[in-house]
Design a protein around this nucleic acid. Structure first.
Lengths: 150, 150
DNA sequence: CCGTATCCATTCCGATACTG
DNA sequence: CAGTATCGGAATGGATACGG
């Protein structure tokens, strides 16, 4: 990631830059796992089921991007573990958006999936696109203003 | 996409399924462009700057996934163009999440980027993760309940 | 436990040429 | 205009062996 660089026309598009940073097959799943409390290399490897060299590469890139950081292990062991930075933690919204879309469109009626719940209420977390007044905004209600259009 | 299949442990995770469907380098950018009103093959190719064969493959997969569909060209020409299905249009929230994160974390202070505005108010669109009462929920306030944990 | 080094297979991508 | 066919190179992924 980050090595390819966004195409010329996409230099000003935040979507393109984000995809360039975390738009591969593993980065978002790693972030998801760390958000879920999986911090150790071996746990990540076991849970994701990918080869160690690939995991090591992705983790290094995520650290380089300032999304993860290495911190002393919480259990007091001699090792380090991976934690989200502030920037990484804010990928929460991206994970939630992916999750909600998948829940709605990639599961059959009778098929069960994991749920993202608020800890206190134990009710599902919601995601809303709104205007400044808090009213819902759909794709049809919005447009992209380019930089050149001031 | 969709050919690799989610790993065994991830079968119940909507995030993993979504990444498996649209988690490559081009699909989300194609969806972004179609959301922005770019519907024709040649326009997509020019705007994204990718080879025609790759674009053709991606478009075919997105159609197979029920995210895009071919419809008669709006300008009355003999050709067809690509339009979002309902399922595809709902990727709007994913695009907004990617955009917002990119705006905040991948642009310097003095660097300009395109903006996503509500048409009527011309104010930036907002994204909120909330509980059922509409109160903000952060990553620390939420947890994933697995299917096995009923 | 947490990686790195190596090797190989597969996939992905870009450029080009071609077709209806 | 909207693709398909082909080819070569690059990136990615997986398995295994090894080291601090």
């Amino acid at each position: 990631m980050g090595t390819r660089g966004v195409s010329h026309r996409d230099a000003e598009c935040p979507v393109a830059r984000t995809v360039d940073v975390i738009g591969d097959r593993w980065s978002l799943l790693i972030v998801r796992d760390v958000l879920d409390g999986i911090h150790r290399f071996s746990e990540l490897q076991r849970n994701l089921g990918l080869a160690k060299n690939i995991l090591a590469t992705r983790l290094r890139e995520l650290v380089n991007q300032g999304i993860l950081e290495l911190v002393p292990a919480a259990d007091g062991s001699a090792y380090q573990e991976y934690a989200l930075t502030g920037r990484g933690r804010e990928l929460f919204t991206v994970i939630v958006a992916l999750r909600k879309w998948g829940e709605h469109h990639l599961f059959a009626e009778d098929e069960r999936h994991s749920d993202l719940l608020e800890i206190t209420s134990r009710q599902p977390v919601e995601l809303h696109v709104t205007n400044a007044a808090g009213q819902p905004v759909t794709a049809e209600d919005a447009f992209v203003r380019k930089v050149s259009e001031g």
